[in-house]
Amino acid sequence: MPYLGTSFFQRDVLTVARDLIGVELVWHGCAGVIVETEAYTVEGDPACHTATRPSAREFVKAMPPGAAYVYFNYGMYWLFNLHVKGGSQDGLILIRALEPTRGIPQMQQRRQREKPRDLCSGPGKLAQALGIDGTHHGLPMAGRGRPAGCGLIQHAATPHEVVTDIRVGISQAVDYPWRFLSAHSPHLSVKHGKVKLPKV
């Protein structure tokens, strides 16, 4: 199966976030099917890094569609995002959860967990399971410069029922229904309808 090209990421960020459900993320011998994403728009979204971080605005301006946007969250976890650019809305898409498909023993070793459900059911978990860190910030995941053994593969089989929900763990724009989930996956970080809103 061929890897996705840059044109996949040159569309509206909400469309891309939905269409990534069911796509397999391949990473240096490990892989997992994406079952949960969150979209953040460059314009009009106070929860997006571009609203407060000049470095994020520069990244969006300079980097090509499909580039990896990796950052350290709460001084604890690396989080892996994909850059969307060239459609009606540019943005960043957080990959929140995977269903592991390849390299499971390596993921188990990195996570020190045995059950597949515990390997990639959250954005920090999946980065740890795959071995993603800050050195991968800006890595092309599509098109020119994409490293061998990394990329995204669209499989024709096994359709997913995609549902939407509010985003997780943010304090602004909390009501935007921009989290996309494979409805019946056991590998989600937070099940549909279970996000706890921040206390006012």
Rank of each mutant, 00 (worst) to 15 (best):
C120W: 08
Q112S: 14
P100K: 01
R117I: 15
E114A: 15
G124I: 04
E114Q: 14
R117V: 14
I104Y: 00
P116T: 14
K115I: 06
L98K: 06
P100H: 02
L126D: 10
P105L: 08
T101N: 09
R117H: 15
E99V: 08
R102S: 10
Q112Y: 08
R110W: 12
P105H: 03
G103N: 09
K115F: 09
E114K: 13
R102G: 01
A127G: 07
P116F: 11
Q128L: 12
Q108Y: 05
G124W: 01
G103S: 11
R102H: 09
G124A: 10
G124Y: 02
Q108V: 06
G124N: 04
Q112E: 14
D118I: 03
R96W: 01
L119T: 10
G124H: 04
M107K: 00
R111V: 10
S121H: 13
I104K: 01
K125N: 07
R96L: 02
P105F: 06
Q128G: 02
A127Y: 03
S121E: 04
T101H: 05
A97C: 00
L126H: 08
E114D: 15
D118H: 14
A97W: 00
E99P: 05
L94E: 04
I95W: 01
Q106H: 06
R110V: 12
Q128C: 04
